[in-house]
């Protein structure tokens, strides 16, 4: 069976203002109904295929996002939802913000907008599905992400 027919997603809230999060959750509810694509929101990274990240990365959650990414089994796809997750968005200059999610983990698809409409997020998920399928066919594995340089907290 095709993996892309029932992708399970894990939703990670990094540094977001909640605007994107509630739109991601709204995608899963009856009106937008992401479940018609077989999408299921799951709480644990070990069972997920697609990682939906909202919000930018800051010095404290950089470890959390790295750990979650490393725990997702291959093949895996990362979808960055919102301007914040893509580039840092309106907060890109704040002192505690490192930047978009792609500063830390490899991102496969971006959904721009502040905040993006649920239709756009669904589009992003559907785009992620074909990437997922390709990764499976080509047996492309995600690299284990290690933190380097100055974003590693010394007590980590």
């Amino acid at each position: 069976m095709s993996l892309a027919k029932s992708p399970w997603i894990i939703h990670v809230n990094c540094n977001s203002c909640n605007g994107c999060d509630i739109e991601v959750v709204a995608c899963l509810t009856p009106l937008y109904d992401a479940e018609r694509f077989g999408v299921l929101n799951i709480g644990t990274p070990k069972q997920a295929d697609i990682m939906v990240v909202t919000g930018s990365v800051n010095y404290k959650n950089v470890n959390v996002i790295k750990n979650i990414y490393n725990q997702i089994p291959d093949p895996k796809v990362v979808l960055a939802v919102g301007a914040c997750a893509s580039t840092g968005g309106i907060f890109h200059n704040c002192y505690n913000v490192i930047g978009g999610v792609d500063q830390v983990i490899p991102v496969d698809a971006y959904v721009p907008g502040c905040c993006p409409r649920p239709e756009a997020i669904l589009d992003g998920v559907v785009a992620a599905l074909s990437i997922l399928e390709n990764k499976k066919k080509g047996n492309i594995k995600g690299k284990e992400v290690k933190l380097k340089g100055k974003e590693v907290p010394s007590n980590a």
Binding site: N13, C14, N15, S16, C17, N18, G19, C20, D21, I22, G55, S56, N58, K60, N61, V64, I90, F91, N93, C94, Y95, N96, V97, C114, C115
Partner: peptide, 27 residues
Amino acid sequence: YVHRGLEKFIDTKDYNQTTYICERICG
């Protein structure tokens, strides 16, 4: 985990632009 530092960030924005930052304190 969600600390961005918006109270400092307003230094670089004028008082009209700060409206948009305040709106993004919480969505």
